[in-house]
Amino acid sequence: MAAVMAPLIETRGLTLHYGGLKAVDGVDFTLEAGEIHALIGPNGAGKTSFVSLLSGRRLPQSGRILLAGEDITRLPAQLRVRKGIAYTFQITSIFPRLSVFDNVALAVQAQGTRDLENRTRAALARVGLDGLEEQEAGTLSYGHQRLLELAMGLALKPRLLILDEPTQGLAASEIEGFKALVRSLVPETTVLLIEHNMEVVMDLASRITVLTFGRVLASGTPAAIRANPAVQEAYLGA
């Protein structure tokens, strides 16, 4: 198949069980290059589990994942990162005892060590953490740790950036900055955004997929999703 025509990500019948619990249950999903695609659904719907399969943190029991037409279902996580899939953790996962600078430098140097210092500072400036380079990352406020997590994701220069509830813990003023930042990423970077804040979702997303009980309930434009009775019942109305 021609890679130009293939969507950036395509999953077929993707399934992940934890013991008896089907966290992801036969998901068919398509992500077009260049879009901001929101993944929403109630707590425990399987959103984090689903993107863990995309990023390679977990391997599925069945189903397939294609990245621009190439099967990456069994590819180890670190190789997917090198192919351009970056994941920012829902539960902040930084290097708490290292400096803010070192945290981001680790992401930058994974892409090559030339001009490391400047590229690191640039990534920090992009999320507004410049000036905090020397601070120990674990002592940052929660919101700043979220931004650091985002800076590490950006520094990987991904084709696909998966953001798992990035605005959780951000102040209202920081959310505005965050939205502008995400908008500035597309179309070079495709964004898959897991988000509970519906205002952010409706503002940013060009497409929305709704997940419940590990299944896709609906997928479409924000207007179509808002008008979908099943979605209203299962999620928005709740």
Partner: peptide, 24 residues
């Protein structure tokens, strides 16, 4: 050196290192 930083990253948070593209 950058490699020293990578070594420390393994000690501090191996899972995160993997998700930055390093093979632990």
């Amino acid at each position: 050196s950058p490699f020293g930083r990578t070594m420390i990253a393994m000690r501090e948070n191996e899972e995160r290192s993997r998700m930055l593209g390093y093979n632990p």
